[in-house]
Simulated assay, not measured.
Amino acid sequence: MKQEHKHIGDYRPNVCAVILHPMRDDAVLLCHRKDFLMEQGWQFPQGGYDEDKDLIEEMKRELREEISTDAVEVLQMSAEEYFYAFPSSSHPKRDRYLGQRQRWVLCRFVGQESDISVETKVPEFDEWKWASPHEAARSIVEFKKTNYYAALREFGLIE
């Protein structure tokens, strides 16, 4: 579902990592944002990136910052960017950007589960789990759902 925007600079470049379980294609890594109720705030690791740098290296930097490891094998990148708008003026990046434009990367985790930790230098998450792609898409905040369903379909993880 390609979305065209006249002012691409109004959207922060962002990379989102869909990380498959090391031995199963029916489970993906899902993280819970701290300061959210447990039934809210679940998402894939994602973050802003410098467009002058290599996208995969930037994704791995984000993974180290958010889940303490970049032990992933890249399987596929999204063919396009996905856009979403921030939900309200209270969003901290809202002053500079209208939303985010995301490149999605499908990866397989190749490390040990003990390598995954959300107890990082500047924690963004307070919990993580393996979840089905359908559960992941259902658990996402409303303003990101369209992107999650579209990218998971593109990667063949849901119908």
Rank of each mutant, 00 (worst) to 15 (best):
R96L: 12
P133Y: 06
V118E: 00
E80K: 14
S78H: 06
K93F: 12
L75T: 08
C107Y: 07
S139Y: 05
E80L: 04
A85R: 15
K129G: 00
R94H: 08
C107L: 05
E127H: 14
Q102P: 01
H134M: 13
A79D: 15
P123E: 02
E119C: 06
A71C: 06
S114D: 14
W128G: 07
W128D: 08
W128Y: 15
G111T: 08
E124N: 12
E80C: 04
R108H: 10
F109I: 05
Q102I: 13
E65V: 03
A136L: 04
Y82Q: 08
D126V: 08
E65I: 07
F83T: 07
W128R: 09
E66V: 05
V122Q: 11
F83N: 01
F86G: 04
W128P: 02
E113P: 13
S89A: 13
V122C: 05
F86N: 09
K129N: 04
I116S: 09
E81P: 01
V141S: 14
K121F: 13
S139H: 06
V74W: 05
E81I: 00
S89H: 11
V74A: 03
A79M: 11
D126G: 10
W104Q: 03
E113Q: 14
E73M: 11
S90M: 07
A85T: 11
R94G: 00
V74N: 01
H134K: 15
A137Q: 09
Q102V: 14
E80V: 11
S114N: 10
W128Q: 06
A71Q: 13
I140Y: 09
G99Y: 09
V105R: 01
L98M: 09
F86D: 00
S78N: 07
